[in-house]
Computed example of a mutant assay.
Amino acid sequence: MSEHYLLNYVDCTEYKLPLDLQNIFGRKRETFLEIGFGSGEFILQKAIENPNADYLGVELSMISAKKLLKSISRNHVGNVRALLVDASFALRNILPKDSMSGVYMNFPCPWPKKRHSERRLNTVSFIEKIAKVLKKGGFFQLYSDSEEFVHEMFGEVGKTNCFDDPVLEVNPTVGVGTRYEKKWLDMSKEIFRMKCVRIKCEINGEEDVVRVSNLWIDDIDEKSLQKVDGKSFSKNEIFVKFMGLYRNMDRNTFLIETLTVDRDFSQRFYVNLSRRGNRWLIKLDSQARPFRTKAVKFALRVLSEKIAKKDPGGDQNH
């Protein structure tokens, strides 16, 4: 992406978490969140109509993020920031508690097939994450063309005890102005809107982000290192798999392709193993930009334990 477009992009791996919104926007204003901004029509229009408020958009698609960032630049809009990250992870770890005045979800995929049920966002767990970032009195608003999805969301909201009674409308007079909405209306499909307001409610959730430090070992066992390739390890809700092993010609540096999963959040990156004098350093590769999560920390620890030459006289890790 062009450096000019990146002015409105937030690389969350470069910031202390949770984000300091005043630092991100350069001012302190009411902040609203859109989960899954797609092509960005809705969040851009909201920002233009409300210049004294700030808007954050969370999206997984790089293509969608580029479209929004280009539109922001073309329209000279300064009160929108885009985050390219999983929404569930963002709600749990990146966005501050009690920070949002409103959260929007416009036409999320309902994932109707049973085999995709784990991808659905109309769950108590996900709704509680939304409640966590909302201020008391802040609203959650959902638009969808799927009646089943909205009714399920309606029921799950009631189970959280975090919101007042949701209001459900069919074909609301005020739409969201996105191309998806126009598409559904052109097909004479019904549109459903659900809106609710957060009431006083304590949301306690364990965060995944931790401090991850480099590790040192005195020497490596190359046979053990070879055996690690392709192996997986798990602990509680953490999963690690070493996907590939690459080395330089002098065998003083290795790269280990690594997959980690923290609950529902996965990352792929490289771990760098290099000789430094008489010892070996294990660290995240300089090109790696994963969030420093419990699974990432676990991956470094497991690797150090599995490949260290056994020394009966003491602990290899310092």
Rank of each mutant, 00 (worst) to 15 (best):
P108W: 03
G26H: 02
V197I: 15
K310D: 12
V150N: 10
N278I: 10
P108D: 04
A87S: 09
R119W: 09
G158F: 08
H4G: 12
C12V: 12
N75H: 13
E128W: 00
K16F: 01
T123I: 05
L281E: 06
V209K: 07
I238H: 15
V296G: 03
G158N: 12
D98R: 08
K67I: 10
D221K: 09
Q267R: 09
K200W: 13
R81S: 04
D229C: 13
G78F: 11
D98H: 11
E169T: 06
N278A: 14
H116D: 15
M187S: 15
K46L: 11
N161D: 15
P312K: 05
K309L: 14
F233W: 12
K135Y: 07
T13C: 02
R179N: 11
M249I: 09
I282V: 08
F25S: 01
L83F: 04
L245T: 11
L284A: 02
Y55A: 03
K183I: 08
N122G: 00
M100E: 02
L300A: 05
R193F: 01
E257T: 14
M243L: 15
E152H: 13
G138N: 01
A53L: 08
V10K: 02
C12E: 12
E147Y: 13
R27V: 02
S61K: 04
T178W: 15
